[in-house]
Computed example of a mutant assay.
Amino acid sequence: TYSSHTRCGFIFFQLFTDGTTNKLVGCYLDDSPNDVVLVRVYGNKTELIVDRDNELKSFQVLHANGCAPRLYCTFLNGICYEFMQGDALGTQDVRDPTLLRLIAREMARIHAIHAHNGCIPKPNLWIKMRKYFSLVATEFTEQASNIRIQQEVPSKVVLEQEMVWMKEHLSTLGSPVVLCHNDLLCKNIIHNSKEGHVRFIDYEYSSYNYQAFDIGNHFNEFAGMTEPNYGLYPSREMQMEWLKVYLQAYKLFTKNTEEVSQRELETLYVQVNKFALASHFFWGFWALIQAKYSSIDFDFLGYAVLRFNQYFKTKPAVMALQIPE
Results as ranks from 00 to 15, higher is better:
Phe275Tyr: 02
Asn309Asp: 13
Glu82Phe: 15
Gln262Ala: 11
Leu71Arg: 14
Ala278Pro: 02
Ile289Arg: 12
Arg101Ile: 09
Met129His: 02
Val36Glu: 04
His5Cys: 04
Leu102Val: 01
Cys186Phe: 08
Asp96Gln: 08
Tyr230Arg: 10
Pro176Tyr: 04
Glu106Thr: 13
Gly90Leu: 06
Gln211Ile: 00
Arg109Ser: 05
Ile190Gln: 11
Phe213Trp: 10
Tyr246Lys: 02
Thr17Cys: 07
Glu82Ala: 07
Leu89Glu: 06
Cys27Ala: 13
Thr141Trp: 00
Glu221Tyr: 08
Gln14Met: 10
Leu15Ser: 00
Gln151Ala: 13
Leu288Gln: 14
His181Lys: 15
Phe83Met: 04
Ile103Arg: 01
Tyr28Thr: 06
Thr20Tyr: 11
Tyr269Asn: 02
Ile149Asn: 02
Lys23Cys: 00
His63Thr: 12
Thr267Pro: 01
Met225Tyr: 14
Thr314Asn: 11
Phe213Glu: 10
Asn117Leu: 04
Gly224Ser: 10
His116Gln: 09
Phe200His: 07
Glu221Thr: 06
Thr267Ala: 05
Glu204Met: 05
Val41Pro: 01
Trp165His: 07
Leu185Ala: 10
Ser3Tyr: 10
Pro69Ile: 03
Ala104Trp: 03
His280Val: 04
Asn309Ala: 02
Leu62Asp: 14
Met240Thr: 01
Ser4Pro: 00
Cys186Pro: 13
Ser155Ala: 01
Leu306Cys: 12
Asn182Tyr: 14
Asn256Ala: 06
Ala249Ile: 02
Val50Ala: 14
Arg307Phe: 12
Gln92Ser: 10
Glu139Ala: 06
Pro234Thr: 00
Asp53Cys: 09
Ile149Thr: 11
Phe275Ser: 01
Glu266Cys: 07
Gln248Tyr: 04
Val260Asp: 06
Met107Arg: 05
His5Tyr: 12
Val270Gln: 06
Asn256Thr: 00
Leu99His: 06
Phe12Gly: 01
Leu170Pro: 15
Thr254Phe: 09
Tyr210Ser: 02
Pro154Trp: 01
Ala68Phe: 11
Gly66Trp: 11
Ala212His: 13
His63Cys: 04
Leu15Gly: 00
Gly43Thr: 15
Asn22Ile: 03
Thr17Lys: 10
Phe200Gly: 07
Leu159Val: 01
Lys194Ala: 12
Cys180Gln: 11
Ile201Trp: 09
Lys128Gln: 02
His181Met: 08
Glu82Pro: 07
Ile120Asp: 06
Ile113Pro: 00
Ile189Met: 05
Gly9Arg: 02
Tyr28Asp: 09
Phe312Leu: 08
Val318Asp: 04
Leu243Tyr: 05
His191Pro: 12
Thr6Pro: 12
His116Cys: 05
Ser171Met: 08
Cys73Asn: 15
Gln85Asn: 13
Leu48Gly: 11
Leu301Trp: 05
Met163His: 04
Asn54Arg: 15
Leu48Met: 15
Gly231Thr: 05
Met84Leu: 14
Thr74Met: 03
